[in-house]
């Protein structure tokens, strides 16, 4: 949000604007068309008619990382794929969110001991917002993860100084300017 990002005082007016903006942001989370392994099948079920993620505004996977807010990492990330995951994440515009879906992506899963080329959790490569465990998780579990992400996005302050981290960041900004 440019220069106004977390610079306004935290009063009721700014808070109301933040709530409205947050509602808009959380209701249009655009995931990326991205699947690695078997968890992607469950992810496709979530996008399809039976579970219908479009009820929450996140139903149309975007075809390019530059249009996406959310990357769901569904499937085992191995050494060869980790480079690609990292590049896709770097291509996404901020603010960007990551859901780690499945046991492999949360911490190695069945490959934790003998997986010679498995990255033991995608959080070694990119920062993760929501972990959805399961092998693979039921579509309801992924939907729950996306609802949790919606809550998280809705709580974020866009304009107001709201939390300690924002205050510190603004203090730095004030000192420079």
């Amino acid at each position: 949000m440019g220069l106004l990002n977390n610079t306004l005082p935290d009063n009721k007016l700014v808070g109301a604007v933040d709530t409205a903006v947050g509602w808009g942001r959380k209701s249009s989370v655009w995931p990326m068309t991205f699947g690695i392994a078997c968890c992607a099948i469950e992810m496709m079920a979530v996008f399809a008619a039976t579970f219908d993620l479009d009820r929450f505004g996140a139903g149309i996977p975007r075809a390019t990382p530059r249009q996406s807010d959310l990357i769901i990492v569904p499937g085992t990330v191995n050494a060869k794929m980790a480079v690609r995951v990292r590049r896709l994440y770097d291509q996404m515009a901020e603010p960007r969110y990551v859901i780690a879906m499945g046991a492999c992506v949360c911490g190695g899963g069945p490959y934790v001991k003998w997986g010679y080329n498995t990255v033991k959790g995608v959080h070694k490569i990119i920062p993760v917002d929501i972990f959805v465990p399961g092998c693979p998780p039921r579509p309801e579990a992924l939907m729950d993860g996306i609802l949790k992400l919606r809550e998280k996005i809705g709580r974020e302050a866009v304009f107001a100084r709201r939390n300690e981290a924002n205050t510190q960041m603004n203090a730095k900004y004030d000192a420079v300017s």
Binding site: A79, V83, R86, G107, G115, Y116, N117, K120, I125, P127
Partner: peptide, 21 residues
């Protein structure tokens, strides 16, 4: 007699590796 690698390039492969970021 395979020796398991701890990294592949800069990609960490160990469970207790520090995340890149």
């Amino acid at each position: 007699d395979y020796v398991y690698p701890s990294t592949f390039g800069e990609i960490p492969l160990e469970l207790d590796a520090i995340p890149l970021y």
